[in-house]
Design a binder for these strands. Structure first.
Length: 769
DNA sequence: GAAGCCCACATTTTT
DNA sequence: TGTGGGCTTC
């Protein structure tokens, strides 16, 4: 234990040994945040806490895996494996799978990724005859996602005056209806989207105090990484779980909060001590990554923000070079000057290509650099394109896996029903959908028994549907017996996907084959690992649960180590990484900061934090560059240098051109400021931030205490004593009813499944006696 | 069901 | 400028 502590600096050590009660670790960029987290967990284990009673939450799989590995190095792999460690989403999915029954969900529910939910939203918008131009699926998706992250259920959304008013003003008064239908459809499909994992976990904890209590008692310590990026739903999950033991440690840096558009609420960290009054605050201020010049420049920059927790980050490394500012006449010239600069530095200081990163505000900027690097024979890798799991061929295969685990999955069914082509067209799918909506059941349920629902199809189509159903059924059956990798291969062959992919001999076709093989290999590895760990269940369920929540940043990271290339990525994607030399490009008004942020103080502060993140990625050299003209949004535009250049103390800057140019910036953006009075009205949850954070009550969740406890003998046409038949649980008798019509909950004693609580609004059942 | 044409759109996106 | 999605056409 002593050896452990010796590897830490005094402030890190203090944070690590403080084990009882709430604590907040403010970790400046490059200050050894992960080190503190891992040592803190290891320290607690060495003090005798069982690893499986420690919960550690991160935002990315990459962070979770990294921490797991480092903890394994300290306390051994066997011990580290027992930790509850993972992303918020994966931990929630794990809890929900155990407890899904009470919410009316199948434990084998599948997960919609962003494109699945967008597709479903598009379908719904069309179905209820709304104009897709007014109701842009992406925008609607955002609204619903934000609502979920602020814990508004569809009912609460519809009941909230401010939200409705906001929608009306943005000419989308029917979002509430779309949300309701969407949620209902997901439920019918036994599916949750990313946000649902957080939302339903909150609903679970709120409506089932005994379940919450179980987890509260279980977790003796909770640790959260990147706390500045938590949203309200995540904040509440942590708060509820930590209530009993109060052993909660959150680590983060308010200066690096850059995900507010995803619902992240910086107030969670700024006001942490208001929620936990006994909080001990630790500050990690020594930066081990960057030169003094870079750290000081970054400090001067972030000092321009009003909202922040005060800290003085310092570096004891060498002073280092000043931050160089490059100016170019055009975006093309910027490309060439950056390429030239990389070659030059490489020659001078023997840097490898992988010591360089080009960071930009928007993905669209990458193209020009791609061209200029290629022409200069500089190897590069762009991060942030289509991820492995979003590729069509991979999604197609996974859709079959999903059908095997959960055939009610609507999007998976739509993906697979006619791929590979088996002559089931849109007309048929529309007919099935129509009946499914009418009957309030899943597409699969209709397809399974077309005759029962009078599906208007001819004999030929019926045969094709039956064929598809038989195929999926055979996979479902095998999934019970066979191991996942064997079944995976089988699925590929039986569906004809293998033949389909092999038939294509183009380079793209070959890469698709490779991807398919890679997927099957990862499935095989997954099964083998589980065998080694002695886990019994070798079916597809767990593989899917993991894969659905996986992006391929980890795969990318491995590649970075292996090959010597210049990295290109957005600043967002660069968070948590470090490079010897960082080139931040496009430092222009209306690009960085983006127009949308200009005019909103909060938006500007976030853009500035983004700039701070970019600068603090650099270990040795940081270079800023801007172009005086650029092709942007379909036209050539004259650009002026970013105001952020002026936020850095000139002492740390090396301007190549006359300083008088700096003065010429001023008029350009005072003028513009008048033009962009785009101070739009705030979304209600933005205004509510204060309220939601400070009130630890769950007033927003369904069924308030009052309604929840109100026991009644009859709700609608259901009475205590009735016998009902539930679609999944079979028959049982109603032993108790509570709540009002809106949030009615029934306790039912099922013959086969024992006592369950059902939310009547969701439950699928019929009264039989 | 695939190919081709036209039009709209162009901010970031841990899961 | 360039892309991607939706629609039309064969």
């Amino acid at each position: 234990m002593e050896v452990l502590l010796q590897q830490l600096n005094p402030s890190q050590r203090e944070a690590v040994v403080h084990q009882d009660g709430p604590s907040l670790v403010i970790a400046g960029a490059g200050s050894g945040k992960t080190r503190v987290l891992t040592y803190k967990i290891a320290y607690r284990i060495l003090q005798g806490t069982y690893p499986y009673r420690i919960l550690a939450l991160t935002f990315t799989n990459k962070a979770a895996n990294e921490m797991k590995e480092r903890i394994a190095g300290l306390v051994g792999e066997e011990t580290a494996r027992q930790l509850w460690m993972g992303t918020f989403h994966s931990i929630c999915s794990r809890i929900l799978r155990r407890e899904a029954g009470v919410l009316g969900f199948d434990p084998n529910f599948t997960i919609y990724d962003a494109s699945d939910s967008k597709n479903l939203l598009r379908t719904i918008i069309k179905e209820i005859n709304l104009d897709e131009k007014t109701y842009k699926p992406g925008v609607v998706q955002n609204r619903i996602s934000n609502a979920k992250n602020a814990l508004f259920t569809p009912e609460q959304y519809a009941a909230d005056k401010e939200l409705i008013e906001y929608d009306t003003r943005s000419h989308m008064p029917n979002i509430k209806i779309i949300y309701q239908i969407y949620q209902n459809r997901c439920f019918q499909s036994e599916v949750m989207d990313f946000d649902d994992l957080l939302l339903y976990t909150n609903i679970l904890f709120h409506n089932y105090p005994e379940i919450l209590q179980k987890y509260q008692q279980h977790f003796q310590a909770i640790l959260v990484d990147e706390y500045q990026d938590t949203n309200y739903a995540q904040h509440l999950i942590v708060q509820q779980l930590a209530q009993l033991h109060q052993n909660v440690c959150v680590v983060g840096d308010d200066a690096q909060s850059i995900y507010s558009f995803r619902g992240a609420n910086i107030d969670n960290i700024l006001k942490f001590k208001d929620v936990y009054p006994d909080t001990r605050i630790f500050k990690l201020e020594q930066n081990y990554r960057s030169t003094q010049t870079i750290v000081n420049a970054a400090n001067s920059l972030i000092g321009k923000n009003v909202e922040q927790i005060h800290k003085k980050v310092y570096s004891e490394k060498e002073k280092g070079e000043k931050i160089q500012v490059l100016s170019a006449y055009s975006d093309y010239e910027e490309g060439y000057s950056i390429a030239a600069r990389i070659s030059e530095m490489r020659m001078q200081k023997q840097y490898a290509y992988k010591d360089f990163a080009i960071l930009y505000r928007t993905n669209a900027q990458s193209r020009i650099f791609e061209e200029s690097l290629r022409k200069n024979n500089i190897p590069y890798k762009i991060y942030g394109g289509l991820s492995f799991f979003q590729r069509k061929e991979i999604k197609d295969i996974i859709a079959y896996f999903r059908m095997t685990v959960n055939p009610h999955d609507e999007e998976a069914l739509k993906r697979t029903i006619n791929y590979p082509a088996r002559g089931i067209g849109n007309t048929t799918i529309n007919k099935i959908t129509h009946v499914a909506i009418e009957q309030n059941i899943s597409l699969w349920a209709v397809l399974s028994d077309p005759a029962k629902y009078d599906l208007p199809i001819n004999a030929g189509t019926a045969a094709k549907l039956a064929g598809y159903k038989a195929l999926v059924d055979s996979f479902i059956e095998q999934n019970e017996a066979a191991e996942a990798d064997i079944l995976g291969k089988n699925i590929m062959q039986k569906t004809g996907i293998v033949n389909d992919l092999y038939a294509d001999k183009t380079p793209e076709g070959l890469s698709r084959v490779q991807n398919m093989e890679e997927l099957l290999n990862s499935l095989k590895t997954f099964v083998q690992n589980r065998k080694e760990e002695g886990i019994q269940n070798l079916g597809l369920v767990d593989f899917l649960a993991e894969v659905a929540l996986m992006t391929d940043t980890e795969r990318d990271a491995d590649e970075k180590e292996a090959s010597d290339r210049v990295t290109m990525m957005t600043i967002h994607a660069s968070k948590g990484l470090e490079f010897k030399n960082v080139l931040i490009v496009g430092m222009e008004e209306e690009l960085f900061p983006l127009p949308m942020a200009i005019g909103s103080p909060k938006g500007m502060e976030e853009e500035r934090r983004l700039f701070y993140v970019a600068v603090t990625r650099a270990e040795e050299n940081c270079i800023l560059s801007y172009a005086k003209s650029r092709f942007q949004l379909g036209e050539y535009r004259t650009k002026s240098p970013s105001r952020f250049l002026k936020d850095i103390d000139p002492e740390y800057l090396k301007m190549p051109e006359y300083l008088k140019e700096v003065d010429s910036w001023m008029p350009s953006f005072t003028r513009r400021r008048n033009v962009t009075t785009t101070e739009t009205f705030k979304a209600p949850w933005e205004e509510k931030e204060e309220k939601t954070l400070s009130s630890p009550s769950f007033a927003k969740l369904p069924a308030t205490e009052a309604t929840q406890k109100k026991m009644v003998s009859q709700i609608g046409d259901l009475s205590v004593g009735n016998i009902i038949r539930h679609e999944r649980f079979g028959s049982g008798s109603v032993t108790a009813l509570e709540g009002d019509i809106e949030n009615a909950k029934a306790t039912v004693d099922f013959e086969k499944f024992g006592k369950k609580q059902l939310l009547l609004k969701f439950a699928r059942y019929e009264i039989v006696g």
